[in-house]
Design a binder for these strands. Structure first.
Lengths: 117, 117
DNA sequence: GAGAGACTTCGACGGTGATCGAATCATGGC
DNA sequence: GCCATGATTCGATCACCGTCGAAGTCTCTC
């Protein structure tokens, strides 16, 4: 049994909210890792905490912000959370946006760390 | 005799600064108008004030933010200021970014108003 | 030169957001 | 059913940003 956390529909996607979410470097790192990695993505918060140098509350806050901006979809299944980027939805509304924003990231450190199984 | 106001070089263009500049709806409107209009663009601040519903200090602040983010180039010539979007520079560093961000603006009202000579 | 007009800078205010520690909640195992 | 574990929420704090009024600066004109 799994439940999907609330998220805006495609029509509700707002550019200001999306940009507001992607201004933060930590959130952009999260998005870049998930955007270029295999999906669905297992995001144990503790792993993110270590790689981003942030505490659990802050990481939780970032994931909520991304989801509420419509950039990610979170499915809760038991105690694990599957988060994946809503590529098609965002692409439909703002073509080329994710590619333009998430393919030129400079600090690949966290990305490389997260890539390890 | 004209002088160019200080601006970051292409190598100094920072995605966080650019997104921070474009998060604000007023600045995004300014950029959209200039990006899609003919350039160079005569930006009498009083016109912007009327169309954006903002006071001169605020408009001045927005233009400064855009310039310091590397999105615009301002050339002062006497008492007139010519501002134009640094399309090539931004495109060189972040391909497709401006197109993705400035071609789906919803509120065309200010854009239409500014379009009139 | 002196004044008028237009933009910028300065100072302040209110709001928003990132961050953390502490408390709370939910889940799986005993 | 109850505890241990891991994430979320709550509350507070700090910094940053948008906005404006007032003061300052620059330029053109007379």
């Amino acid at each position: 049994m799994s439940r999907k956390l609330p998220e805006p529909s495609v029509d509700e996607l707002d550019l200001t909210a999306i940009l507001g979410a992607l201004v933060d470097p930590a959130r952009r790192t999260i998005m870049t890792v998930m955007y270029r990695g295999a999906e669905p993505f297992d995001c144990s918060a503790s792993t993110w905490c270590a790689n981003l140098g942030l505490t659990p509350p802050t990481v939780s806050h970032h994931f909520r912000t991304l989801r509420e901006a419509g950039l990610t979809r979170t499915v809760v299944d038991g105690r694990t959370r599957n988060v994946r980027v809503r590529k098609e939805d965002v692409e439909k509304r703002f073509p080329g946006l994710l590619d333009a924003l998430l393919t030129h990231e400079h600090d690949m450190d966290a990305i490389d760390r997260m890539a390890r199984p």
